[in-house]
Design a protein around this nucleic acid. Structure first.
Lengths: 257, 257
DNA sequence: GAACTTATGTTCGCTATACGAACACACGGG
DNA sequence: CCCGTGTGTTCGTATAGCGAACATAAGTTC
């Protein structure tokens, strides 16, 4: 029937099964077999097979046999990724130091497609209206960590990315003009840090630095987010930046793999 | 060949594919096809098919075609679970309040098998030697949240659990005698909170309260972990406990589903 | 550095496996 | 009560995934 991905080395069943997990989400804790089938574009028969399988594996629960819901076991999958990052624990430790020193939240993120994905976080008082947590995604172009990560990408890749992406303004301050953005990124790479001032959310200003591996490749970014009323732009560069830089180099130094 | 789980409504391929993700972990960021096959008990051919599939889906990367590693996209799976929890965001907010008020880390966890699994966390200064994060697991019997969750489980289930589990001491204070443990749990349920004093790690004392849904069923627990030198046992009940209780009832009140 | 051994990755014909059309069953509205 | 609509389940069939067998690379030994 569908010959889209049929290479003989593609396991359709696995791909379909994973969409079942993704069928759950906000406002969709409890789903019937048919709900899942609809949301994952599967026949009811298929959805049933997958749900029953996931249930046996402990990823899914169903008390009454009608409504299915995800179980904490699915976190093990994400944890497999997190724990596979060689510098993850180390970063966490030094981020705690940063957070304690500046009394603000500190996060780490990597790039995935055009988004940043949070992989570690030490939270203090909330500054953003949105809830950020591990696994959360934000558009790279409007975040301090995103800019840092983009700036350190291969030039060819970056060209292509800027070319084909449509940058939408998020606040009134968001820079979306491609030439302007490109210039900002060059500057970010030159100076080795990035400040984003209320481009993602009004009242929020954050600063990020890159995280290099032993080979000098930028693998992630760490940042500190502040409220404009609490921390001046000046203080960001004089106090927070040095703390981030110290942490960044310490993490690089402690890199195991 | 193997007729172990062959009910006709069990999709072997999905189960196998998921083990591929779990093959990665600490000290196993980059794995060859053969490594994966070994660690997941698959033939090399199967491991190859799965890895190539996961690669196409963006869950796995392979620069050279030899070494494979997990990508941030796998966090989306865990995120599907977290975001499906109706009170997750709300809890996060009130936990931030608790953490700010008492200036200590606050976590939320649910029960899975005999473990607690962390599902939300507001971290301040580190008190444990281990790194805790979302998805982390700890033995339920030796943690404050674990005791709370166990105490509110169905009596029949609890009997069975205590019966068939072998409780190993973690520190010199860990209570492992089954009658003593059972007595503690009864007390926990009666008083509506649980203090665990250095039973999980020396120098660490924590207090937990249950989190009820609208129907009065205990769905999770939230706790505050402290260092014995910084917070007295007295202060735990006089200051921290009220904060936790307030948060708990506010979360229940704001429960949407 | 040839000759052998071991381990890794890939191919390909076969059959077990996952597939979905068809069926049965529950619900609800007229 | 009947009919329409939606949900879950069965079962024969085709095909998707399987692994034995092959090729190719990486070590070992003399």
């Amino acid at each position: 029937m569908s010959m889209t991905k049929d290479d003989g080395e593609y396991v359709q069943t696995l791909a379909r099964g994973l969409t079942v997990i993704r069928a759950f989400g906000p406002q969709h804790q409890k789903l019937t077999l048919s709900d899942v089938a609809r949301r994952a574009n599967l026949t009811r028969a298929a959805a049933r097979r997958f749900l029953l399988t996931l249930k046996r594996l402990g990823y899914v629960k169903s008390d009454d046999g009608k409504y299915f819901s995800l179980q904490p076991a699915v976190l093990d999958l994400g944890y497999a990724y997190l724990s596979s990052i060689p510098w993850w624990e180390i970063a966490q430790r030094y981020m705690e130091e940063v957070s304690a020193a500046v009394e603000e939240s500190c996060s780490a993120a990597v790039l995935a497609d055009g988004d940043i994905v949070y992989i570690a976080r030490v939270a203090t008082q909330r500054i953003m209206s949105m809830t950020i947590n591990i696994g959360s995604r934000m558009p790279a172009y409007a975040t301090s960590m995103g800019r840092v990560l983009l700036a350190h990408q291969e030039p060819a890749w970056l060209d292509d990315f800027i070319e084909k992406t449509n940058f939408a303004p998020i606040t009134e301050h968001t820079v979306v003009q491609k030439p302007a953005l490109r210039k900002l990124l060059t500057e970010v790479k030159r100076q080795g840090f990035c400040i984003v001032d209320q481009e993602l959310e009004a009242g929020v200003r954050s600063i990020a630095v890159p995280l290099f591996d032993r080979q000098g490749k930028c693998q992630a970014a760490i940042n500190v987010g502040t409220h404009i009323a609490r921390v001046s732009k000046m203080k960001l560069t004089t106090t927070v930046l040095p703390a981030l830089r110290t942490a960044s180099s310490k993490i690089t130094a402690a890199w195991t793999a």
